[in-house]
């Protein structure tokens, strides 16, 4: 992606080995994060996250749908990421498509948990309205406005912020409908339900450069990586999902070590995000 000379590569690698990166950060320090919520009036919830030069928008739309037959008492969540060519010329055509599908696949693994929905960061049972008949379908759309490294973590943070900003209209189910009919529903315009987002995990991508791991890699550092793992960790410090990027193989013990380092970093990030989201919500209400 980013063309680097051998000298530049050595410079970056040497800096990382000495715990001082090219922008002055230490290995496990994030760039400043700015969060703004409620940026899209058309959506049920939305947020914009800026992490250095990376800027992403996440929006949540809720629609009524039918639950799947396997999980009749749960709602459904769809995650989709769009990389617009306005962010970078390489996103035009197939380049963007590939990255988009990689990112949405990773988010799916990190946030939605197993197929049965257990262990998912988003509590799907609260989306059910009438068991087996009607549920909310949440469409989570991410948009990459500007790409400057570490897109996945930024998208994860944006989705977390957008979900805590999401207001789902209260639904009144008409009583008396027989059990095999589709019940009639009435969507309230005034009453909304807030979404419980305390369980939504944060996503941390650890990039391995040489023998060390760094978080929040810039594009220069990303182009240098041989492998990276993205983990999602919830408040209980349990692992909720993991994907590996980069082609180089890793020793199993290294992966376990990376997971424990990631868990350690997650706590700090979680607190930082929570306070930023709370501040953004407060600003929006003013």
């Amino acid at each position: 992606m980013v063309g680097l000379s051998i000298g530049e590569k050595h410079f970056i690698e040497g800096g990382i080995a000495q715990n001082l990166r090219t922008d002055g950060r230490k290995r496990l320090v994030y760039r400043p994060i700015q969060i703004e919520t409620g940026v899209i009036p058309q959506a049920n919830g939305s947020a914009r996250v800026r992490m250095g030069g990376t800027e992403v928008i996440a929006s949540v739309k809720a629609e009524l749908g039918r639950p799947s037959s396997l999980q009749p008492d749960k709602g459904k969540v769809f995650i989709n990421v769009d990389c617009s060519p306005t962010a970078a010329p390489i996103f035009e055509g197939r380049g963007g498509e590939e990255l988009s599908s990689e990112l949405s696949g990773a988010l799916q693994i990190c946030l939605l948990g197993g197929k049965s929905g257990a262990g998912a960061g988003i509590d799907l049972s609260s989306l059910s309205i009438v068991g087996g008949k009607i549920c909310w379908d949440l469409y989570i759309d991410g948009l990459v406005v500007s790409a400057d490294g570490n897109l996945l973590d930024a998208l994860g943070a944006a989705i977390k912020a957008a979900l805590s900003n999401t207001a789902i209209p209260k639904v009144n189910v008409a009583a008396g409908a027989s059990s095999d009919e589709q019940p009639e529903v009435d969507i309230s315009d005034e009453e909304f339900l807030q979404f419980d987002t305390s369980a939504v995990p944060v996503i941390i991508t650890l990039t391995k450069v040489g023998r060390e791991y760094i978080v929040d890699a810039t594009p220069e550092e990303e182009s240098h990586m041989d492998s990276a793992i993205s983990i999602s960790v919830n408040r209980q410090r349990n692992l909720c999902g993991l994907t590996k990027r980069g082609s180089a193989g890793l020793d199993p013990s290294v992966i376990l070590d990376m997971v424990s380092v990631g868990k350690h970093v997650s706590e700090e990030l979680m607190n930082k995000l929570d306070s930023e989201i709370a501040a953004a919500e407060a600003r929006e209400e003013e």
Binding site: I109, G114, G119, N234, L242, K244, G249, L250, P252, I255
Partner: peptide, 24 residues
């Protein structure tokens, strides 16, 4: 409730792909 898939090069003791879902 959760799944884990490992792709490995066994004799090099290296993992080329790893995907974990669910809470662990």
């Amino acid at each position: 409730e959760g799944g884990l898939m490992i792709t490995s090069m066994a004799s090099r003791n290296e993992i080329t792909q790893l995907a974990i879902t669910g809470e662990w």
